[in-house]
Write a protein that binds this DNA or RNA. Structure first.
Lengths: 110, 110
DNA sequence: CAGTATCCATCAGGATACTG
DNA sequence: CAGTATCCTGATGGATACTG
């Protein structure tokens, strides 16, 4: 195997890196919805995530945006309208999400 | 898409379920090592996870064992010897881990 | 060697209220 | 509608010391 620990012993395992990016409690679910449903508005997303708090959702969205996984498009209308969608980079995560979704479906109590 | 939110609105998304199982800070890395290196002893595992604290490692190992992902084989010798290895169920996670590893390797700073 | 036991720090995550 | 702003809590993770 190619060891995930580098020679200098400083860098982390690449799996750790991935987990750090999408390990937030809601991030995988958000990405999954955006990847499968396409573009979604803020409250639309909220409705898909029962129980998520305002602050938490906007926080996770901001992080995902900063990491370049999602686009945030703001329309300066009244009332305001904001749309979220996947970026190219975000789409590269879909294989992982698909596997996670399939595994959970197979092994969870659903 | 098959909506991950069930009709009663009670169950979680299957992705959430998966994340809950392997979302611990070290779990994916532990599983990855056991899945690729095969059987490992406690301190061998420790050496592969620079920075992990005793308590944390044993904790995560216990949870992984309780979830049925890994086997714990104890030899009552002196000094004691404990071996960890993947279960069949644990191996079903490998596709996810492989994807995460590949993604991290491609997009992280390695 | 392979762990517990303790005690502590941090912070992600949450409830609620307010705002442009 | 789509957010901040506050304030708060609990689970997770960590350092260190002790044990069979």
């Amino acid at each position: 195997m190619d060891t995930p620990i580098d020679q200098e012993g400083k860098l982390k395992c690449s799996i750790e890196y991935t987990l750090k990016k999408i390990g937030g409690k809601w991030k995988t679910v958000i990405l999954w919805h955006l990847g499968t449903d396409g573009t979604l508005r803020y409250n639309g997303l909220r409705r898909l995530l029962p129980g998520v708090a305002h602050k938490v959702l906007s926080q996770q969205l901001k992080e995902l945006e900063e990491d370049g996984f999602i686009n945030r498009t703001q329309y300066d209308t009244i009332p305001p309208k904001v749309e979220y969608s996947m970026t190219e980079l975000g789409m590269t995560l879909m294989p992982i999400l698909k596997q996670m979704h399939a595994w959970g479906k197979e092994h969870g109590e659903f």
